[in-house]
Design a protein around this nucleic acid. Structure first.
Lengths: 236, 236
DNA sequence: ACCTGAACACCGTTCAAGT
DNA sequence: ACCTGAACACCGTTCAAGT
């Protein structure tokens, strides 16, 4: 079921032709199969059927490879939601945040890279531009829109990274219910006499890594942002 | 100026006595001097004047060492602010958030460890307990308090980690103004014709890694949380 | 119980050499 | 221009041995 524009795309073959896109493709595959710890120059080279030092024609070093992977993953989330006509600014931001989580969770090993490498690539900038535009639709000033944009970025990337770090980071991730149950089990019993609030909330804390928590947090953040907006709920 | 309870504490000496605390001390020193990339079994052993494999008596492996360092750094922030009598819940949370940032920035290399290793140690749990108690003072239900707690944790740890990742991570960090100026310089010029919002907000974006942005974000988050509180502003 | 010596299987990165 | 061969200086971790 290959796309027509992707001629053959063999798994590991004798290296038909190399270019940066193919290197990043391979890096993402290594990440998906082996988790965050598996990514490395030698592993990617092996997957391409090539010697490790061959990669240095396309990538400056390991850090540059990681940045390229981070950019690639960001580009997989569809920004069309941010410009969807007829939808309110708040719905657009919520949709995009949820969709970004789904995208990142489908390449869990890549999520920590977003926190490790500075995101200054063209894709990251383009996303920032669209987020600021959406927040100005809400009636925020340019400065407030920029600050709110970063608040949202921190929340989205931070949540998903912490969520992934509790797994082995290989795709596909276990189902959310299973991951929450495993986390609940690892927490064991809490003595209500010494940690009353923790003991009472242990089930909710187990679900910190889930979609419901994610939605709750984004919602609260958007409420806080809405406080600063002049177009409370029905902006363009 | 050594504390009386710290007998001699030499820098690297012939290893007077080893225990887990001294190992974590050394790890934190390695981190402060060399940044996140410097931390490792061999580097810590060298700092203690001991062979690498000697560490395995006190720490299971590298991952356990990193978790121990993360726990240590968390314990350096003073939780007394969360229980300060006579102060409103919102002031207590703001004070603690600001103080946690200061603590983490004083050991910048350790900040990324909080995002990389699951935080399930006793210190992390104790902080969670106090945060939940404070948020219940605000009138949140147990479930809401737990969800708001995680929202705050993600925001604090996420912000500081992204802030540190743009530096070399060695202590002491350059002054905030210098770091913002350097970031502004790295962003270069942006064409207003293609990225109008980005071009207009470039100075604010440079300051994303600063204390003003941090405060703005925490404030917005607390506004969102306050929406769900029954004790709007003058809780116990 | 705690530390060393020695070794293992890895890393990222370089440089000269081939084609 | 692009890839290989070979080597460099590293890693984390193990195991047997010493004391």
């Amino acid at each position: 079921m290959d796309d027509a524009s992707t001629p053959v795309r063999r798994k590991r073959g004798p290296a038909r032709r190399l270019d940066e896109d193919r290197v990043v493709d391979a890096a993402l595959e290594v990440l998906d199969r082996g988790g965050p710890g598996a990514l490395g120059i030698r592993a990617v080279a092996a997957r391409l059927g090539v010697r490790p030092n061959a990669l240095y024609t396309y990538v400056a070093d390991r850090a540059a490879l990681e940045r390229a992977v981070a950019e690639r993953v960001l580009s997989l989330a569809d920004t069309a939601m941010l410009t969807a006509p007829g939808r309110r600014w708040r719905e657009r931001l919520t949709d995009y945040a949820v969709s970004m989580r789904t995208t990142l969770l489908s390449h869990p090993g890549a999520a920590p890279l977003l926190m490790t490498a500075p995101m200054d690539g063209p894709t990251a900038v383009a996303i920032g531009e669209l987020l600021m535009a959406t927040l100005e639709d809400a009636g925020l000033s340019a400065e407030e829109a920029a600050r709110a944009t970063y608040l949202l970025i921190v929340q989205v990337v931070g949540s998903v990274t912490l969520e992934v770090v509790e797994t082995d980071g290989r795709a596909p991730l276990a189902g959310e219910d299973d991951r929450i149950a495993a986390r609940r089990g690892a927490m064991g019993d809490v003595d209500p006499a010494v940690l009353p609030h923790t003991a009472a909330a242990v089930d909710v804390m187990a679900s910190w890594i889930g979609g419901e928590q994610y939605r709750w947090a984004i919602d609260a953040v958007l409420d806080g942002i809405a406080t600063r907006a002049t177009t409370p709920d029905d902006g363009a």
